[in-house]
Design a protein around this nucleic acid. Sequence first.
DNA 1: GATAAGATGTTA
DNA 2: AACATCTTATCA
Length: 180
Amino acid sequence: MGILAKNFFNRNTLEVARELLGCKLSRKFNGKVLSGVIVETEAYTRDDPACHAFNGKTPRSLTLFKQPGIAYVYMIYGMYHCLNFVTEPEDTAGAVLIRALEPISPLENTNGPGKLCREMNITRELNEVDITGENSVIRVENHLKVPAKNIITTTRIGIKKAVDFPWRFYIKDNLFVSKK
DNA sequence: GATAAGATGTTA
DNA sequence: AACATCTTATCA
């Protein structure tokens, strides 16, 4: 099925976060392809106190201002990485955090943002890689169509600012959504 | 330079 | 509820 192109990411972050549900994420590593269905996402935008880019450009947040359709990978708590896709036009900060996958290729422990990166060998080396190319090490394609009634909208997890923003999305009743 | 906080996960 | 563990941003 079709690989998601730059256009897909060059849009409102909340729309992208919702529409990524049901898409297939593939990660090439050591000659193998690891893949899973995206079942949980969170949106982070400019004007969002919880977003790394809220206070403007810093060495780390600069990635969020770059072109849509690249990866934003950062380290959290000194031991885990988190994978995001950059959204919105260039110079407008925005990203979608990938929080959980339902395995397609054999994978375990993909029900959390740190766990799925550990499982798929996603590190800071992949920061800013293009995810819209045919041969990208990370790419996303259309896979399952998730009916609107099966998309649950709630508040985001693990943040201390903007805790009331309903910007977390997940597939209803899916067993691989992260636990609270 | 120092310091505090952090988009997490595991263990108890 | 504690903690493992270290990058980042901010301030001096």
